[in-house]
Simulated scan of single mutants.
Amino acid sequence: MTSQTPEAADSTRSAQSADPGVLELGLPEVVHDPALPARVRIHEVGARDGLQNENALVPVEVKAEFIARLAAAGLRTVEATSFVHPKWVPQLADAEELFPRVTGLREQYPGLRLPVLVPNERGLDRALARGADEVAVFASATETFARRNLNRTVAESLEMFRPVVSGALAAGATVRGYLSMCFGDPWEGPVPPAQVVEAGLRLLELGCAELSLGDTIGVATAGQVSALLGAFDRAGVPVQRIAVHFHDTYGQALANTLTALRHGVTVVDSSAGGLGGCPFAKSATGNLATEDLVWMLHGLGIETGVDLAGLAATSTWMAGQLGRPSPSRAVQALAGPSSPGTTAS
């Protein structure tokens, strides 16, 4: 369901109050919190961050259909793919074939954004040649992960992105900066906020319009989120340039998201059906499920523009394509026990 005004939500509940099955309709009870943002933009990463972690190669036709269904469900930022070398992420080796298949969706759904990840200048050139107008680069806040993922130090990797960002901006594209390992690193342990801020500032100084703070292995707590966002605030970074990207390893992704919202963050990354992880950090589990996020946001009266029922149906369909159930609790609740997107009762 799309977000409702307080009056519309009250009317819906009044009309259905006598129906004991009202909760089965997928309408959370709406209780507004004036301290929270009125609207949140969901940055959907299932088609890229989600599918890149699948062992099997998903056919390009299925990927294109997945993106189309996500757009039809109201998501207006859908990260489509990554122009990375097939050797490193073979699951996304079809980027040059996939992206032209979905660019027409931007005409069908006004305002639809289809960013893509680019690892280097070669990847940028490939993306721009296929019509990309939004790209993202991926850096690390920790030295060990930077060396394992990019074979460079943090400083060297950030310098590597300088021509990528400048080239994208020169071509009229906007750039997002992903920063991984912002809360905990499996090799280095807890990550000091000052260390994250230093790397984040470098990405912003390069020209990134938005900085996504990633809890790559899902160990963050609400207190850590508050401390890190406070550190960025003290460093003079406007909260409007910050996004959050949580994994749900310990079931804390929604709590961490709510903490970020209370700090004024209005952009949240999530993955339809909870798909994803990180191929370069084996302890990473799935992303925050978009359906779980939308259920919480709509219950708080926060607008998203997303049709929750349509989104859950999309994730159920994709679960069938992948041959395994969706880990999203909201998908399981909305789809029912007989659906291929749920676990058996």
Score class of each variant (00 low, 15 high):
Met1Gly: 09
Thr5Met: 15
Glu7Cys: 09
Thr12Trp: 15
Arg13Thr: 15
Gln16Trp: 15
Pro20Lys: 09
Pro20Trp: 09
Leu23Val: 15
Pro28Ala: 02
Val30Cys: 05
Val31Ser: 06
Asp33Thr: 01
Asp33Gly: 00
Pro34Gly: 03
Ala35Gly: 12
Ile42Glu: 05
Glu54Thr: 08
Glu54Gly: 09
Val62Thr: 13
Lys63Ile: 14
Ala64Arg: 06
Glu65Ser: 10
Glu65Thr: 03
Phe66His: 09
Ala68Gly: 09
Arg69Thr: 13
Leu70Ile: 12
Ala72Cys: 02
Ala72Asp: 12
Ala73Phe: 10
Glu79Trp: 05
Thr81Asn: 10
Ser82Met: 04
His85Asn: 11
Pro86Phe: 11
Val89Thr: 04
Asp94Pro: 00
Ala95Thr: 08
Glu96Asn: 13
Pro100Lys: 04
Arg101Cys: 14
Arg101Ser: 08
Leu105Ser: 10
Leu105Ala: 11
Gln108Leu: 02
Tyr109Gln: 10
Leu117Ala: 08
Val118Lys: 03
Asn120Thr: 01
Asn120Val: 00
Asn120Ile: 00
Glu121Leu: 11
Asp125Cys: 01
Ala127Lys: 02
Arg130Pro: 00
Asp133Gly: 02
Val137Ile: 15
Glu143Pro: 05
Glu143Trp: 00
Thr144Gly: 13
Phe145Trp: 12
Arg147Phe: 11
Leu150Ala: 10
Leu158Arg: 09
Met160Glu: 15
Phe161Val: 03
Leu179Ser: 07
Cys182Pro: 01
Phe183Gly: 05
Gly184Lys: 13
Asp185Met: 12
Trp187Ile: 12
Pro192Ala: 11
Pro192Ser: 04
Val196Asp: 03
Val197Cys: 01
Ala199Trp: 07
Leu204Asn: 01
Leu204Ala: 04
Leu206Gly: 11
Ala209Gly: 01
Ser212Arg: 03
Leu213Asn: 02
Gly214Pro: 05
Gly214Lys: 03
Ile217His: 03
Ile217Phe: 05
Val225Ala: 14
Ala227Tyr: 11
Leu229Asn: 08
Leu229His: 09
Ala231Tyr: 02
Asp233Trp: 05
Arg234Gly: 10
Ala235Tyr: 04
Gly236Ile: 14
Ile242Met: 11
Ala243Phe: 01
Asp248Thr: 01
Thr249Ser: 07
Gly251Tyr: 02
Leu254Gln: 05
Leu254Glu: 09
Ala255Lys: 03
Ala255Phe: 08
Leu258Ile: 13
Leu261Gly: 12
Gly264Glu: 12
Gly264Ala: 08
Val265Ser: 09
Thr266Glu: 15
Val268Asn: 09
Val268Phe: 06
Val268Trp: 05
Ser270Pro: 05
Ala272Phe: 07
Ala272Asn: 06
Gly273Phe: 01
Leu275Phe: 06
Leu275Met: 08
Leu275Lys: 03
Gly276Asp: 08
Cys278Gly: 04
Ala281Asp: 12
Ala281Thr: 10
Ala284Asp: 14
Asn287Phe: 02
Asn287Ala: 08
Leu288Tyr: 02
Leu288Ser: 08
Leu288Phe: 00
Ala289Gln: 00
Thr290Lys: 00
Asp292Gln: 00
Val294Glu: 02
His298Ile: 07
His298Asp: 11
Gly301Thr: 08
Ala309Cys: 04
Ala309Val: 04
Ser315Glu: 04
Thr316Pro: 07
Trp317Leu: 07
Gly320Ala: 06
Leu322Pro: 09
Gly323Leu: 11
Arg324Phe: 11
Pro325Met: 11
Pro325Gln: 10
Ser326Cys: 05
Pro327Phe: 01
Ser328Trp: 00
Gln332Asn: 12
Ala335Thr: 09
Pro340Ala: 13
Thr343Val: 14
Ala344Gln: 07
